[in-house]
Nucleic acid binder design. Sequence first.
DNA 1: TCGAATGTTGCGAA
DNA 2: TTTCGCAACATTCG
Length: 273
Amino acid sequence: MPELPEVETVVRYLRPQLVERAIVGFTAHWPRVTAPAMPEDFARQVTGRTIHAVRRRGKYILLELNRGYIHLHLRMTGRLLVLPSGDPEASSQPHVTAEFDLSDSRRLVFRDMRKFGRVGYLEDLAPLETRLGPEPLSSRFTTRLFHRLLRGRRRRIKPLLLDQSFIAGLGNIYVDEALFLARIHPETPGSRLSFARARALHRAIQDILSESIRHDGTTIINFQYGEGSTGRFREKLRVFRRAEQPCPVCGTPLAKIRVAQRGTYLCPACQVP
DNA sequence: TCGAATGTTGCGAA
DNA sequence: TTTCGCAACATTCG
């Protein structure tokens, strides 16, 4: 479910509730939530440590400890909530895959209907960094860098943008939205984009992500944060899941095609190879 | 019953 | 080496 703006929204909700709390216990209700590690090993690594910062890298949530890091990935349907530990609500939540007990006698609860979400422990972030491309909203992600990364990549632009080692944080929704804003057909080979079109796409990516963060992300099926709040960006989506509806720019009915096994929405008139 | 769904990984083949 | 398609993970919904 969540892409960069949704993960950022969750991080902003968690940060004030977790910073400077210690982890006093961990329970895996679904043993594979810590895969490939064993739940007992993970629990041993994190209990007794204090959370000094809560950050985001791509679609990962990072809890910076006094030593090492916890990384959490929500995948499709993961949710994180902070609840008072005596609260009967905490145990009545459905699909709870893991729980952290905190020193302020509250709990960080990981709910995940489809059970794809994972948590893990890292001594340092190097293994994560080698698998992730640049952060699209960082100042280091310049037009020049983006154009340089695109050079020599004959892969179609949509699967390229979905590849987290090429650029971190984009998923199906924002790739379609950014390509629409930049008027680029999703099957255009990356290496075929001129500098001007790469610049337009770079701007579109940054615009769409920051606009969505301002609206606390997009709720399509089940993204929620905090006490069940939903993202408000859904109503701002221009093409995603809007097949047959008129293009907001030219009025041509929007199309749905399949690219790299993913449903892909576009304006067949505006977006050109 | 089948297919699709906001995500990632690993494998074999071109 | 790069890219592509597909299966797998687990569940819900139309």
